[in-house]
Design a protein around this nucleic acid. Structure first.
Lengths: 146, 146
DNA sequence: CTCGCTGCAAAAAATTTGCACATTG
DNA sequence: CAATGTGCAAATTTTTTGCAGCGAG
């Protein structure tokens, strides 16, 4: 898992350094979006220290390689859980527990492309986050969903 | 147009103040996302001055009333161009000229809901931005779209 | 006249930059 | 050992807060 990311990293000619590995590990363990300072804090509780600048730069790199994503709604970062062959990556965000489910769906992309076409718009990329309730939270507290 | 927003503002018990009118006017005139400081700058060129805090607070208010939106990709603000009866507001963003086309489509919402349902996820709201080329830019520079 | 709104000062938070030194391959 | 990457210091940018006084209804 982290191994996969490391492989991609190196395949693109980037070095595998201790900070990069640490950031990847923290992202891997957390299913919720984390800010750079969140990551720094988590590491600190483990006696590890990374400069925030390093974390910013690492996250930049990971996002460029599509190994991580910046969530639009929260601004936090999560590790990518899909491979890059499947089109636009989308997210379901649970309003209750914050958990993220990443997915990709080519049909949805196609429909959106067609739709945009009607406006004369040529779509290249789709940003998309659904917010709602994951199955667990919905089952536990259906009233939350009104 | 600005008049409509003012009506909504007042209908919710908010006062119509000079700063609020100015912010609405600037948003109305610009079809591209603006940051609070962009707005301040534009006003300054007209000899008007608003404190940035006021602009932040006004934009907050407008977003809460759905009279404006914060774009996910850029973080900038635009005036809402739809009324609130039509479900989730979505955006097409031209990568070339930056122009925004807002739209809503209930079918798309429904399909997304159904799709999410398969994951046991209950969708409440959809954030969605398409990036690509508007008809003008696409016609002028088709090579941009590869 | 009253409550909500604005401006100001200031702080806090988020992000970026340049450079000397350390580390990876 | 060469190229990359890290940490540090510092600056910049963005956003938030508290409070005194102004102004819309």
């Amino acid at each position: 898992m982290v191994q996969d990311s490391i492989r991609v990293l190196q395949a693109h000619g980037h070095k595998l350094t201790k900070p990069r590995r640490l950031v990847l590990e923290v992202l891997e363990e957390n299913e919720k979006p984390l800010s750079p300072y969140d990551i720094q804090g988590i590491l600190r509780t483990r006696g590890k220290y990374l400069n925030h600048v390093t974390i910013y730069r690492t996250l930049d790199l990971l996002c460029n390689l599509n190994l991580a994503h910046r969530m639009l709604s929260s601004g936090g970062f999560i590790k990518c859980s899909l491979d890059s062959t499947e089109g636009c990556h989308r997210f379901m965000v649970c309003q209750n527990c914050g958990a993220i489910q990443e997915f990709a769906d080519k049909e949805l992309c196609q429909e959106e492309n067609d739709f945009a076409q009607n406006f004369g718009f040529h779509t290249e990329h789709h940003l998309s986050e659904f917010s709602g309730f994951c199955s667990q939270c919905y089952r536990k507290q259906p009233q939350l969903a009104e």
